[in-house]
Design a protein around this nucleic acid. Structure first.
Lengths: 220, 220
DNA sequence: TTGCAATTCAAACAGTTGTATGAAACTATC
DNA sequence: GATAGTTTCATACAACTGTTTGAATTGCAA
């Protein structure tokens, strides 16, 4: 094991290069040049290029998922096993958005890497995403408890739309900025979270629990 | 020009293979084998692989955009230059969803190709998508006319969320089906359109034009 | 110091990729 | 039916890719 200096140098260099130039543009030779290590080191330490990418992505998404569940658990415990739907949705999309957006010039390498992963979706990453379903089921459970009268299908659609808004906003943030000529402020992450949560909440409560908190629905 | 038999054989084969196996898995040699033509024919007729992909994508997206504008224009003419926001949103997301979803076993090659393009987003396709902004501006204009009291920023966010729900549902349709264990019926395209339009409408009208048509908001 | 395992290294490997070439075959016009 | 222009073809090219190899080096324990 020694100090694992080479191993972590590869991880750092790979994340930075993938974040900057995307997966399809970066070769192992680029990575080892940036890391200042030998070409064979990648296969020695990670087995293959795909496993290197997988490790990068898994590390980051584990962190996000942990934060998601932490927020969800805290909310449900505070509410005696049942959290308000807005808070559940916030726990679902908040960590993802906070992890990727924010002022562009101060975005971490990790953030930019996750944006790339969201845009390009290379095979090893797709494989990992497919295993995320179990994780999402925990949110389905919480949402069901929060909205017991709501049909199961509506819950799934609500979840789908919440994730849609969060991920699409991340993926197409540049286009939204250009389209709105800078008027949409994507640097204000908490505003983005509030907007997504607000719309997703409406999607899940409209036509049913109308009586509840109509003042919360307006974005901002 | 002759009959252009070779040219169209390449287009057909390429669309089919890309639809079935994705961009990264299909080589020019696969395409010419499927088309029964010579390898050099691709560069002769299209100039390069990227230009072939671009032509495939442009053809399909022009068709979608034309349909979008047709619906938008019809709606605005009927309303004397101002269409209801629901109809505008339906014109925006309807053609895209109808072009990609529907019963899986009867999905056209074109539909499956567009799903792939939505998932993989290869360079030549990304370039074309970036030119789509002018097209979207026409919808921004219509939405502004439909909701004159709404702030411009809210309009952009509403448009962004509408596209988010449509594209994410297309891209992740498989995952939604699996997560919901088949309960979410993605074959019923008009139901999907109605759900997306309903939520997007709420996003754009909540907190303002509340008085208007509260019966329409509930999806099914 | 010696010995042994872990690590690093230069080099080559094996395969694939998109593209270019130049001759051959075809097609339509005169 | 000769000719000019288009299209097709087999083949080679040139470059790049991830991976493997086997020797050299390093670091640590006995």
């Amino acid at each position: 094991m020694a100090s694992d200096h080479t191993r972590s140098a590869i991880l750092t260099a790979a994340e930075r290069l993938y974040a900057d130039r995307g997966f399809s543009d970066v070769t192992l030779r680029d990575i080892v040049a940036e890391a200042g290590v030998n070409l064979a080191a990648v296969n020695y330490h990670f087995g293959s290029k795909d496993e290197l990418i997988a490790e990068l992505f898994v590390t980051r998404s584990i962190a996000t998922n942990r934060e998601r569940l932490r927020e969800l658990k805290a909310a449900e415990e505070q509410g005696g096993g049942r959290a308000p739907i807005e808070v559940i949705l916030r726990a679902l999309v908040g960590p993802t958005l906070r992890g990727c957006l924010g002022p562009e010039n101060q975005r971490s390498t990790a953030a930019r890497f996750m944006i790339r992963a969201s845009i390009e979706s290379v095979p090893p990453i797709r494989r990992i995403k497919n295993r995320e379903i179990d994780h999402l089921r925990k949110f389905v459970g919480a949402m069901r408890r929060a909205l017991p009268e709501r049909s199961e299908v509506d819950i799934y659609w609500g979840l789908n739309f919440a994730l849609a808004m969060a991920h699409h906003t991340i993926r197409e943030s540049e286009r939204l900025t250009k389209l709105s000529e800078g008027q949409c402020d994507l640097d204000d992450v908490e505003d983005v979270v509030a907007r997504v949560v607000s719309v997703a909440t409406m999607a899940l409560t409209a036509g049913r629990v109308e009586a509840k908190a109509p003042s919360r629905v307006a974005a901002r």
